[in-house]
């Protein structure tokens, strides 16, 4: 029954699919993991802070981001970032940031809200005595956070961070609304051009699946390496 399909279309266009499409997707994902977790951790610390304005700001930010659809956020930032950039560098005209940078900023800001809630739970899972022990040794807030609380919180939260990251990896495909050529975008373009929808969408699904499995395996290996011995 696969007689009328031509899977050769995939091999013929592999360089484009991988070098252009997949590179964009993987680079975006990698940067958003790092920036999202860093920014999310800061948000979590702010949300748990005893300084009112900080926790109010973080709470509002997290709730806002978590209650609007990602597509909407993508549009917002796509149109807003050039103006914010202009405002920051005091330029009279909107700054062109490019599709990639715009996507990195958008997804980092969005995912940070989700990572923040995960890291907040992680921070709260560390017994108070650990913080006391750090303070009693003379560590300040930042030192005890960086050396005692966060390393343990991160370890505790690795499985949930992984789940969130896999969701995010799949959600990067939504950049298609900005006509950006990520992996799925590249596959769509070829599908349309050559009229080979089934082949390319099956291929895309398989690739997403395989990459998710690889990420899971790598994270599980990492988790075993950094596991706390109890």
């Amino acid at each position: 029954m696969f007689g009328q399909f031509d899977f050769g279309v995939i091999t013929r266009n592999l360089p484009y699919l991988i070098k252009v499409g997949m590179m964009f997707t993987l680079e975006l994902t990698a940067l958003v993991i790092v920036l999202g977790i860093v920014f999310g951790t800061l948000l979590a610390m702010m949300r748990l802070s005893s300084i009112r304005v900080l926790s109010a700001f973080a709470t509002a930010y997290i709730n806002l981001m978590r209650s609007v659809p990602l597509v909407l956020v993508i549009f917002w930032f796509y149109f807003l970032v050039p103006y914010i950039g202009a405002w920051i560098i005091r330029s009279p005209t909107p700054v062109r940031v490019g599709a990639f940078l715009s996507s990195v900023i958008t997804y980092s800001m969005f995912e940070a809200a989700y990572y923040a809630e995960i890291m907040r739970a992680g921070i709260q899972s560390i017994p108070r005595g650990q913080v006391w022990a750090g303070y009693a040794l003379g560590l300040n807030y930042w030192q005890s956070m960086a050396r005692i609380v966060l390393p343990q919180a991160f370890r505790n939260m690795v499985p949930i961070l992984l789940t969130q990251t896999i969701v995010m990896f799949q959600d990067t495909s939504l950049v298609y609304v900005l006509s950006i050529t990520d992996f799925l975008g590249a596959a769509s373009k070829i599908a349309e051009r050559d009229g080979r929808y089934v082949e390319l969408y099956i291929f895309a699904a398989v690739v997403y699946f395989v990459i998710c499995v690889i990420i899971s395996v790598l994270v599980r290996r990492l988790q075993r390496r950094i596991a706390v011995i109890r």
Binding site: G129, Q130, A133, Y135, A136, G138, I148, I229
Partner: peptide
């Protein structure tokens, strides 16, 4: 405070060694 605390040793009921 950090400077002062560094000069005062404290030992806790549940040890509070850093497990990682």
């Amino acid at each position: 405070l950090p400077k002062l605390r560094a000069r005062v040793g404290m030992v806790f009921q549940h040890f509070e060694l850093f497990p990682h």
